[in-house]
């Protein structure tokens, strides 16, 4: 009978399909493993090369001085010098740029999602997407050609001098311009994801459009906006080329606190003069690389913890519940384990 044939073939095919499923699963796992390995390899490579100057004696039998690496306010480019102030400058420049970029992005996002007429909404969105994919070098050129004269004029107007417009302030502005499209895009996505029914409910209660925008839309999308900010921080912390063109590459110690001074960051220092660097002068940049990686990893962990906390607050759970929850869970697991052991 024909149906018997189908049955037979179905069984064979089913077995074959199961094997294919298993094979594909392994292939995907393997690919994912390779990707992870590349990242780990890069980090380990930098770690190893960066530690070497401090552990392995160089030609004259001395190793680099670790306390000098931490405490020296100057960077000498001959392999000696301290990175602490550069690390602080990196964080400082990023923070300042966030002060400019986050509110601007939120307003841009709100405008595009809620306020602007539907006809130009798509054009604006596409414009922001294009801005987000412009390479950093172009922002650097923009900073050099356009922002430097503006900052110079502004500095002169308030009675300060700059290095032809190169300054921490110019660097902050360039970073702000670079991160605004990124944060705006993510903000737009999270604002659009806010349930339209919530806005309707708010309007039905007699709230104005702007009240609805701020109290409902912004509040509901705040964890999304925060995620966008994390992306922006990542881009700003790691920016080298654009920043190097405008920040001046000079200065020691606490100079970076005055935004009209020139300074340098971890990234620009790693890049400066790399063409002519050999030996220890080249290797010490890897040590800076370690510092940069640590800064980025720690920042990301802290920000993600904060994001999870904010998401939980959004969902309305009280703050201390989570700690108690974890302890309770551990207790339950332990009890279950002990119970299982007994049996």
């Amino acid at each position: 009978m024909k149906s018997n044939n189908i049955q037979q073939n179905a069984l064979k095919k089913a077995n074959f399909k199961t094997k294919i499923d298993l094979l594909v699963k392994f292939i995907f796992a393997f690919l994912a493993l390779i990707c992870a390995c590349v990242v780990i390899f890069i980090v380990i490579f930098i770690l190893v090369k960066g530690i070497q100057p401090f552990i392995i004696p160089d030609g004259s039998g001395a190793t680099q001085n670790i306390s000098d690496f931490f405490l020296n306010p100057n960077w000498l480019y001959d392999g000696t010098g301290g990175m602490s102030y550069m690390m602080l400058a990196t964080i400082y420049v990023t923070l300042l740029s966030l002060i400019i970029s986050v509110p601007t992005s939120i307003f841009c996002g709100l405008f595009i999602v809620k306020v602007c007429p539907k006809s130009i909404k798509e054009i604006l969105k596409t414009g922001v997407q294009i801005l987000a994919s412009i390479p950093s070098v172009i922002f650097g050129l923009f900073g050099m050609g356009v922002l430097k004269p503006i900052v110079k004029g502004f500095a002169n107007a308030v009675g300060m001098q700059t290095f032809g417009g190169s300054s921490v302030l110019t660097g902050v502005l360039v970073l702000a311009f670079m991160t605004i499209p990124t944060i705006t895009l993510v903000s737009i996505t999270s604002m659009e994801a806010v349930d339209i029914n919530l806005s309707k409910a708010s309007l039905a209660l007699g709230a104005s459009n702007q009240q609805t925008n701020y109290k409902i839309v912004l509040k509901a999308s705040q964890s999304g906006i925060f995620a966008g900010t994390i992306l922006g921080i990542g881009r700003a912390l790691g920016e080298a080329t654009a920043l190097q063109m405008v920040i001046g590459n000079g200065g020691v110690g606490w100079d970076f606190l005055n935004v009209f001074n020139i300074y340098r960051t971890l990234t620009t220092t790693m890049l400066a003069g790399i063409g002519e660097a050999t030996g220890i002068k080249y290797d010490i940049r890897f040590s800076l690389g370690i510092v940069l990686i640590i800064v980025i990893v720690v920042t990301n962990i802290l920000l993600n913890l904060l994001k999870n906390y904010m998401t939980r607050i959004d969902k309305g759970e009280p703050k201390d519940k989570n700690k108690i929850g974890i302890i309770k869970n551990i207790k339950i697991y332990l009890e279950a384990y002990v119970h299982a052991k007994k049996n």
């Binding site: 029914n197 919530l198 309707k200 409910a201 708010s202 039905a204 007699g206 409902i216 509040k219 959004d314």
Partner: peptide
């Protein structure tokens, strides 16, 4: 809308 209120089909309390 402050004088005329509305309740929707799907409950939509604010988060």
């Amino acid at each position: 809308r402050t004088r005329v209120g509305m309740v929707f089909q799907q409950p939509n309390p604010f988060p």
